[in-house]
Design a protein around this nucleic acid. Structure first.
Lengths: 197, 197
DNA sequence: GTCTATATCCAGATAGAC
DNA sequence: GTCTATCTGGATATAGAC
C-alpha cells in the first residue's frame, strides 16, 4: 500500500522511500538499466538498509508489484460497489484507468507496460491477476444477464477493454497529444458497440 | 530479411545464425537475461566473429528489429494489394497476425511484446513503425469512404486492432488454450461492429 | 535499523594470431 | 572472417561497526 501515498515526503520510512524511488527509476529507465546504486543515490537510503528491508533487487520489484496490484484491485472493487449494471461498471473501469494513467503514469506503466516475467521469473502474468479477473467477470455478467451477445467470454472481455488498454499504451508511449479522458466517450462507444446486443 | 528463413540450417552464414539464435534467446529469456556468451554457445559462432558482424550487443537487437519490421511491412503491403475494401484489408491483417503468431511466435513476441526502448534507447516505439502506420491508414480510408463512423482516426484504429492485439498478448502469455485462428471470427465481428456505420 | 567499505563475479568488449 | 585468450568496469550482495 505504501506506494499509493506518492509523492513521498523526505521523512518517509526507508522502505517506502525505496519503493517510491524504485517505481520512478524502473519505469523511467527500466528494471535492468537501474542499479541498486541508482536507488541508493536517489532515495537517500543506504545499500545496507535496502538489503535489510528487501531480500535482493528482485524483492524490491516484487514488493512494488504486489502493492500496486492490490491498490488496483481495491479501486476496481470500489467501482463494482458504486455501479449496478455491467454497462456502467465497465465504463467506470475504463474511466478510472484513464484517470489513473494521467494522475500516476508511473504506476500504470509499471503495472501494464513492464515485462514482469523478465525480472520476476515466477510471477503470474498480469492478465491473470485479480484486477483483470474482476474486469472479465463484469463482462461475463453482462453476457449472462443477456445485454451482451453470446460469445467466448475471453473474447468479449478483450473486445471491451482491449481498445482502452491500447490507448493507454499509446499515451504512455507519447503518441497521444491529448490526455486520455478526452478520448473516453469515443473509446467507450466503440467498446460497448463491439459486444452489445 | 535473414531471419524470415527460420529455422536456420547449420551451414547458414554466421550473421544469420547469430540473428536466429538471438531471436530465440531474447524472446525466451529476455534481452537482459541473455549474455553474449549465451549467443556464442547456442549459435556456434565465436565472440570475435559476433563483434565483427555487429557493433555490440545492442547492434544485434537493432538488426533483428529492423529485419522483422521490414518483414512485417512487406506482409501488410501484400495484403493491401490482394484486398480492395477497408473491411477485407483489416480482416486479412488480423488473420495474418494470428497466423504469424502461431507459426512464428518468437517473431511476434519480439516485435509486439518486447520493450524495445529499454535496450534500444533511441528506437521509435513500435506503434510508430511502418506496419502500424499502414494499419492505421486502412482504417482511415474506411472513414473517408464513409463505411465507418466519423471519429478520431487513432481511436478507430485502436478499436479495430486493439482487441486482436490483446488476444495475441494473451496467447503469447499462455492464457489461451486454443490457437488464435479459432477466435478469428468472433474477434473480427467485435472489431468491425465497434466502428462500422 | 542504518551506515561504509568491500568482496566477488561476470558482463560486455577488445587484441591480435591465423 | 573467424577464432582464443584476456582486459576492465560495474553490478549485486555481504561484513561488520555503530
Amino acid at each position: 500500500m505504501s506506494v499509493s501515498a506518492l509523492p513521498t515526503s523526505p521523512d518517509t520510512p526507508a522502505r517506502d522511500q525505496v519503493l517510491a524511488t524504485a517505481l520512478r527509476l524502473f519505469t523511467q529507465k527500466g528494471y535492468f538499466n537501474t542499479s541498486v546504486q541508482d536507488v541508493v543515490r536517489d532515495s537517500g537510503v543506504s545499500t545496507g538498509s535496502i538489503y535489510h528491508h528487501f531480500k535482493d533487487k528482485e524483492g524490491i520489484a516484487k514488493a512494488l508489484y504486489d502493492d500496486l496490484v492490490a491498490h488496483m484491485g481495491t479501486a476496481i472493487a470500489d467501482i463494482r460497489k458504486q455501479h449496478k449494471t455491467p454497462h456502467d461498471r465497465c465504463r467506470a473501469v475504463i474511466e478510472q484507468l484513464f484517470q489513473m494513467t494521467e494522475a500516476e503514469p508511473e504506476i500504470m506503466a509499471f503495472m501494464l507496460y513492464a515485462k514482469h516475467r523478465e525480472f520476476m521469473p515466477e510471477a503470474a502474468p498480469i492478465c491473470s491477476s485479480k484486477p483483470f479477473e474482476q474486469m472479465r467477470n463484469m463482462v461475463k455478467e453482462g453476457m449472462d444477464s443477456g445485454v451482451l451477445v453470446q460469445m467466448d467470454p475471453l473474447v468479449a472481455a478483450t473486445a471491451v477493454f482491449g481498445g482502452a488498454l491500447r490507448m493507454i499504451h499509446l499515451r504512455l508511449d507519447g503518441i497521444l497529444e491529448k490526455p486520455l479522458p478526452a478520448y473516453l466517450d469515443e473509446v467507450w462507444q466503440c467498446a460497448w458497440r463491439s459486444v452489445a446486443k
